[in-house]
Structure formats: structure tokens, C-alpha cells
Amino acid sequence: MNNPFKLNTKTTWCPGCGNFSILECLNQTLESLSLTPQDVLVVSGIGQAAKLPHYLHAHGMNTLHGRAVPAAMGAHVANPKLKLILTSGDGDTYGEGGNHLLHGIRRNLDIVHMVHDNQVYGLTKGQGSPTTAFGQVTRLQYDGMKSDPLNPMAFAISIGCGFVARSFSGDPEHLKSVLKAAMAYKGYALIDILQPCVSFNQVNTFKWYKDRVFKLPETYDPHDKVRAFEMAQLFGDEGIPIGILYEETKTDFLGRFNHLEKPLVQYDRSPKAVESLLDELL
């Protein structure tokens, strides 16, 4: 049987881009969970990565640059029955949308947030992103980046994200296993996916990542926050750990509102609802 999520559309991604593998891994994971396209809502911002909702068959929202997280929140409170996936770039997520990420995590939205981290702005042709290394030369920053790079994993752990993981588009089996675990997690699951951009990042290439990533050992306990924070410091020549760095069970956003018995979208509403409120104003 064909994968129901697969669409035969042409993409506007460059040949060799890491995004293809991410899309394929997502399609396969969704199918492996026996979900249908009608069960899934894929939300994104704007960027190369954020085009993904147009390239698979499921409900989609291609929103604005940096604004996918709050849009996803609104969608989620309206209809939590939809499996919510957010897929966007490092610039979108950590730059323009940084504030929303912070607060989305604080709310603990039940979401799988995949960050296609190519350490560069792809769509706008090669400017530095929040994860571009200090001093790295880009098409814009000819004299090198003057800001320190963000460490998204340490950031997420420190602000209380309950599922913090890293994977690599060049290791589809690993990515699928992390995705599957994220889908099973109830709460904010952030996955930073190392994704080579063949056109605009000549430093963090497929080989660069391949030579540095290593899988977290089976003995690694993702519930140890201090150890996770330590692990999250590793990036670059000392190696890049991939896998679930941190995991913690906590009540998700909608679980914190006990006055709703069903999804908002299922309530039948009537103007008569104001009558008792008007009585109070008499």
C-alpha cells in the first residue's frame, strides 16, 4: 500500500538538501503510527524548511515567519484531537520566533516541534542564523558572525521543556526513532534536526555532521537533568550527541484547564449563554 501522506508534488528544495530526508522520515513515521492524513495537522512558519506542509498530504498551516508556535497553540486548543506537528527552520524557530518557543514550552503544548537546523538562513540565501558558529563567515557576515551561537538544547532543558532531542537528517533510522518517541510524548517535544544546506552552508556539511555525531549510549538516562545539561554542551569537534537528551513527564497545556470536557470545536453555542451573565448586571 502507498503511504497516504506521500504527495507527488515537485518541491523547491535543492537537490541534496537534508530536508528531503526529514520529509521522508516524517511520512514514514506517521504511517507507522497508523495515522491518517485527516488525523494530522502540520504547522510551519516561513523558510525552506517551513514549506514542508505543502509537500505532504495532511492538514496544514503555512503561517508567517517565526509565528508557527502561537498559531499551533490556537489550532490545538480548538481541536486537540489533531496530532500536532510543527516543522520549521532554525531562523524561524530560534530567531524570529524565539519568544514564542520560550512560551510554547512554558505552556507545555502537546506538540512535536521539528527544527530543521541548517545553521543558516536558507530561503533568504545564506545569512547567519542563531545557531551559526561565532566567527563563521556567511554570505552576509563576510567578517564572521559577531554573536555567540544559541545552544537550543541547553536552552530548552533550562526552561523546562519535557522532551529535548537532537537528530540528524543523514541518519534516517535514528530520526524516525526519535520522531516516534516524540509522537508518543504528551507535551512539548523539541527535536533539533541537524540538516545540511548544500547551497548556503559550506561549513556544516553532511560530512561535517557525519564525522561528529554520535548516538547517546544505551546506558544514558534522559531523566537526569544535570547530566542532560552537560551533554547538551557538546557541539562541534568534541562530538555532537544525538538522541533524547532529556525527558520528563508533566501535565500538558490543555490538561491544566479542568473546566473543558471536550474540544472547544465540539461545543454547541447559543446567544442565550449571556442571559445569566446579564442577570448579574441587573
Binding site: 504547522v43 490556537g74 490545538h76
Partner: peptide, 14 residues
């Protein structure tokens, strides 16, 4: 975020 969230909900039937 406020307006984006409202849009997210409104586009999902609420």
C-alpha cells in the same frame, strides 16, 4: 502571538 493564536483557533472551527 495573541492574533496568531486566534487565527489558529478560528481556522480550526472555533
Amino acid at each position: 502571538a495573541a492574533m496568531m493564536a486566534a487565527i489558529g483557533a478560528a481556522s480550526n472551527g472555533v
